[in-house]
Simulated scan of single mutants.
Amino acid sequence: MRNFVLSLDDTLPGKFEITKEGTVHDPRAPVAPHELTTLRQRRCLERVMPEDVVAHAGVPDVEDAIQGVMRHPDIIVIREPDMEGDGSFDPRTLIAAIEVVSRSNPDNDWVGKMRDYPLLGVPVYAVFDPRTGTGAVLSEIHSTPDGPRYATRKDFVYGEDVTIAEWTIPTDALPRYP
């Protein structure tokens, strides 16, 4: 599945990911509010984080081959030394994964990634939803009969400060989808 998804990256528009449920394809390129939200979050985080921790937006993906899951967070919070090497990032090295909800496929962020990130061992998952001006920060992975899940969820509305891992950032300058 991984080789198939990687072979499509340069041939079809959009983003492909491998989940526990199969393949996800978001055919649309991110819109301006999505990209602006990502940029502003990265800048706010990097102002408050130590120098060896980065808020990275870009490639490569985050993958656990044993679980058969390959995801592409909008932003990952990771120590710079953990970015060294070839191939996908090890999800167990992430401090947090941050997603800006896609207008074209919101369930990917609110359902699929909420299921897959604890499975991958990502300790904190933050979701920002420009459709509604709300979001949530999920943490504290625990076991359930359906697999690992986040035990703690802190909802927020745009305009409130939000804490991701150990860093607090404002949300008042985040755009909404028209």
Results as ranks from 00 to 15, higher is better:
74 D>Q: 09
62 V>C: 12
132 T>D: 08
152 T>F: 00
173 A>K: 10
81 P>M: 07
164 I>W: 01
69 V>T: 14
92 R>G: 09
18 I>T: 09
28 R>Y: 12
92 R>V: 12
178 P>R: 11
51 E>Q: 14
161 D>C: 07
11 T>V: 15
88 S>I: 07
163 T>N: 04
116 D>I: 07
49 M>F: 05
15 K>C: 02
41 Q>C: 13
124 V>N: 07
10 D>G: 15
38 T>N: 13
102 S>M: 04
25 H>I: 11
81 P>S: 13
23 T>I: 15
31 V>Q: 12
122 V>D: 03
101 V>I: 11
169 I>V: 14
17 E>R: 06
102 S>W: 00
4 F>Y: 15
88 S>R: 07
36 L>G: 06
117 Y>L: 03
79 R>H: 12
81 P>T: 09
170 P>M: 05
25 H>D: 03
40 R>Y: 08
151 A>R: 13
46 E>L: 04
26 D>Q: 13
125 Y>W: 06
130 P>W: 02
85 G>Y: 02
5 V>T: 14
140 E>N: 14
8 L>C: 15
135 G>T: 03
98 I>M: 03
6 L>G: 01
23 T>W: 07
136 A>E: 09
63 E>N: 11
152 T>V: 15
59 V>K: 11
81 P>C: 09
114 M>W: 03
84 E>R: 14
61 D>I: 00
36 L>Y: 09
127 V>I: 15
89 F>W: 15
111 V>D: 11
94 L>I: 06
7 S>Y: 02
112 G>D: 14
59 V>P: 10
33 P>Q: 06
45 L>V: 09
50 P>S: 10
113 K>R: 11
71 R>P: 03
61 D>Y: 10
53 V>K: 02
138 L>S: 12
164 I>G: 03
165 A>L: 03
8 L>W: 07
149 R>M: 08
25 H>T: 10
156 F>E: 03
50 P>H: 09
102 S>P: 03
79 R>I: 02
138 L>G: 00
67 Q>K: 14
85 G>E: 09
105 N>F: 01
85 G>K: 08
100 V>D: 01
164 I>K: 04
51 E>L: 14
73 P>W: 05
76 I>P: 00
84 E>L: 13
35 E>I: 10
100 V>W: 00
148 P>T: 05
151 A>L: 07
155 D>N: 11
120 L>E: 07
121 G>F: 04
42 R>N: 11
25 H>E: 08
5 V>A: 12
89 F>G: 01
168 T>Y: 06
176 R>G: 01
